[in-house]
Design a protein around this nucleic acid. Structure first.
Lengths: 148, 148
DNA sequence: CTATCTGCAAATATTTTGCAGGTCC
DNA sequence: GGACCTGCAAAATATTTGCAGATAG
């Protein structure tokens, strides 16, 4: 597992923002929960263990900022809350989420495989794709086994 | 353009639900705005023209029901509201949305082209895909032209 | 020193729910 | 007639904002 490869300080400086202990703590938390898709409230709960004085509003403001800087991505897992995950890739090559409609587990898939579709979209619509979000709904292998 | 191919009455009967004027009015509205991705509030505004007494709560309850029956699909266009579109296909073959990050236009693409990815997901993860949601972010042709 | 940040509380915004009365079948 | 539905208002939820004081650089 890699240690912090993110130079928070310089990323913030580019934007004219300051490196505060709150922001560092929040980054540490989400670095330690890379696979977790945490909501703002969940991040807040975890962050309070290190620093009980951090407010929920600060978490929201920080996630907004981290999203702009590209440190995290906001995602929607259909439970009515915004959720965030660390942005592990430089490019628009992004993994996909498999959502099991039986047990609600979220599995990640690393393949992208959307190049040909994106190429076709460019040719037929003149639309230049720079990013995408893909969710698959279905039945995970454990649930499929269980229902045999 | 096809006229109402949806037999609302029998779909509702299957679920033990009743056909009320409110539900019929709401269906009529969304049939006439097939390409629109309306929010609950927008549907409510339109519906009130025919029947000013319909409440917003009824719209929410009806969209929940229509979503269960499969008449509509809820979607998330990243503006913080739930939006709905008519479900035009029987199968899980679904169109995709192109969201222009310059002008916020939403364009629809009819190609699916996810079969090979879904096949690969089944082989590698044993996950049976039954439905998917795909959003592409980028620049539409008008915006691309404008910035030349 | 000062622009930026923070915590708190209040404000917003969206969606859900309880209930008393109304209506489809 | 009775289960189901509706409108209204209130509640619940999620997120944003205003502000006075604190702090990074």
């Amino acid at each position: 597992m890699d240690t912090n490869p993110i130079n928070l300080s310089s990323l913030l400086k580019e934007k004219g923002c300051k490196l505060t202990p709150q922001r560092q703590t929040i980054l540490d938390i989400i670095m330690n929960c890379r696979e977790k898709h945490l909501s703002a409230e969940e991040i807040h709960d975890l962050v309070k263990r290190s620093n009980p004085d951090i407010g929920l509003a600060t978490v929201y403001r920080t996630m907004l900022l981290f999203n702009e800087i590209g440190i995290v991505h906001k995602l929607d897992l259909d439970d009515g809350l915004g959720r965030y995950e660390l942005n592990r890739h430089e490019s628009s090559h992004r993994h996909h989420h498999l959502i099991c409609t039986s047990c609600n587990t979220v599995i990640e898939v690393e393949q992208d495989l959307l190049e040909s579709l994106e190429q076709q979209i460019l040719l037929e619509h003149g639309f230049i794709v720079r990013d995408h979000r893909v969710k698959f709904y279905g039945t995970c292998s454990s649930c499929a086994d269980r229902s045999l």
